[in-house]
């Protein structure tokens, strides 16, 4: 198996090398001719007002928090899904399903709570 990750590493090196080489290569080929107006940020022809780094709505963070919770759930569900086959072989299939159902039900309750609380509502 270690060999397989070696293959992945070689592939990753090829991918990174492509990105780096193409960026460097285009550096030599392209013209460089900056001027004040050309470098202004694009705001549909208006003169930009203020910097772009300012507040944006908190709604994005709420989705982010919900995402973290459920992404961890996905991570925990995958080993459970893999173990299910062995547990079934040992006659513990029902036990494994009920266990998994409880875990998912707790998180589904969390989703329902966020839903009712309006956290998933975009406004």
């Amino acid at each position: 198996m270690a060999g397989n990750y070696g293959y992945v590493a070689v592939f990753a090196i090829v991918g990174v090398a492509f990105a780096v080489i193409s960026l460097v290569m285009s550096w030599f080929l392209r013209p460089h001719n900056p001027s004040g107006e050309k470098l202004a940020t694009y705001e549909c022809g208006e003169v930009p007002v203020g910097p772009a780094w300012r507040q944006f709505r908190v709604g994005y963070y709420i989705y982010l928090l919900a995402f973290v919770i459920f992404d961890v759930e996905v991570l925990f569900v995958i080993p459970w899904a893999l173990a299910l086959r062995n547990l079934k072989g040992q006659g513990l299939g029902l036990f494994a399903v009920v266990d998994g159902a409880i875990f998912i039900a707790v998180l589904a309750a969390g989703l329902l709570y966020a839903w009712k609380k309006g956290a998933l509502k975009w406004e």
């Binding site: 992945v8 592939f11 990753a12 991918g15 990174v16 492509f18 990105a19 780096v20 960026l23 290569m25 285009s26 550096w27 080929l29 392209r30 013209p31 460089h32 001719n33 900056p34 050309k38 470098l39 202004a40 940020t41 694009y42 910097p51």
Partner: peptide, 29 residues
């Protein structure tokens, strides 16, 4: 490839430079 590369005023140059590669490399691998 032959077009001029424009770095806008006030852009964070390092992040601005590497962002396309950060987008491209995971897509490939």
């Amino acid at each position: 490839i032959f077009k001029e590369n424009i770095i806008t005023q006030g852009a964070d140059k390092v992040v601005y430079f590497f962002a396309p590669a950060v987008s491209m490399v995971p897509a490939i691998i």
